[in-house]
Simulated assay, not measured.
Amino acid sequence: MVAERKAGRKVLTSTGGSGDDAQHAFGWRDAMDLVVKWRQLSEPNDQVVWVDLLTRKEFEAGFGSHTPIYSGQTKCVRYYMNFERGFSLFKDILIKEGHSFDASNNPVPLGGDQKRADIAAAKTAEELWQVIGVDSWAVVHIESCSRAGHSMEGTRLTLVKLRNQPDAYEFSIRTPVTPPRWQDYDQELSVMWEATMAALVDGDLPLVAQSALRYAYYWYNFMPLARGTAVVGYITLLGLFMAAGMPVTASIPKNYQDVLSSMRHRLEALNGLTAPRI
């Protein structure tokens, strides 16, 4: 594809997982769908599908991922290493915005100096739930790279009291994918994909690294697959670096089960790069 662009030829395709067979320029979704097809074949028992290709009812309802970090008396082995960071971020958002959202997506006011102080002082999921008083969630906003001043909905940090279990609470990450959110990320990923391709064509390795990492960062916040988003994003990231002639040889850092958690730190390691804030 890069060779075709260098030669000044447009790359067209009629596939790409969108369900639309019309011929179009090869874009981010066409590239990701190649890896999605591999993921579908590698684990045929998993339902690896694009969320926007589910039923309209499921898509519009916000079908998404659910990743428990702490549930009841269980520290989820794969993700608990992110509890302190996620819990601290959740409290910061509550204090800054002055509200959370309940299960019906209605705002739950958290005003008052005392309540904010109690939120800041909470050290466990149970203590924080008792301060809020209801099951609730907060949005982690991230900044757009292509639209100055535009904020996007990243993931949701969620705190609920488990039913039929005394003194049991769950702190988790949930990422619902709705049509408006899909349009938002589609625009962002389109811009970042083109930036990555342009950098590859120009042979600008620092810019390739910057654009590829940003692209992967938005992909992980997007979570557009019913299953397999993590590995599809990671394989794509490794592929982009290999295409640039600089294969990644380092392992994922210790205590980071998922790539998203370390993406910001890798971005900041690049000279002169400011990572998207979360």
Results as ranks from 00 to 15, higher is better:
3 A>C: 06
4 E>C: 01
7 A>P: 06
13 T>C: 10
15 T>G: 11
16 G>T: 00
17 G>L: 00
21 D>W: 04
28 W>I: 02
39 R>W: 01
40 Q>P: 14
40 Q>F: 00
45 N>R: 10
48 V>T: 15
55 T>L: 07
57 K>D: 15
60 E>L: 04
69 I>G: 04
70 Y>C: 04
72 G>D: 07
72 G>W: 01
74 T>P: 11
75 K>R: 12
75 K>F: 06
76 C>L: 12
79 Y>I: 06
82 N>V: 07
85 R>S: 05
87 F>H: 10
93 I>M: 04
94 L>F: 12
94 L>Q: 14
97 E>F: 09
97 E>P: 02
98 G>Y: 12
100 S>A: 15
103 A>R: 13
106 N>W: 11
109 P>V: 03
110 L>Y: 13
112 G>N: 15
113 D>R: 13
118 D>E: 13
119 I>S: 08
122 A>Q: 05
124 T>W: 02
130 Q>E: 14
131 V>E: 03
134 V>H: 13
135 D>A: 12
135 D>F: 04
146 S>K: 05
149 G>E: 02
157 L>W: 15
158 T>M: 12
158 T>W: 11
160 V>S: 11
172 S>G: 13
172 S>W: 13
177 V>C: 07
178 T>L: 08
179 P>E: 09
179 P>G: 12
186 D>W: 03
189 L>H: 01
190 S>W: 00
192 M>S: 06
202 D>L: 15
204 D>A: 14
216 A>T: 06
216 A>E: 10
219 W>E: 06
221 N>I: 07
223 M>N: 15
224 P>K: 11
225 L>A: 05
226 A>M: 03
227 R>H: 13
229 T>C: 01
235 I>R: 13
239 G>H: 07
241 F>C: 12
246 M>N: 09
248 V>R: 02
248 V>H: 00
252 I>W: 04
253 P>Y: 06
255 N>F: 10
257 Q>C: 02
257 Q>A: 05
261 S>P: 11
263 M>Y: 02
268 E>T: 05
269 A>Y: 07
270 L>I: 09
275 A>D: 04
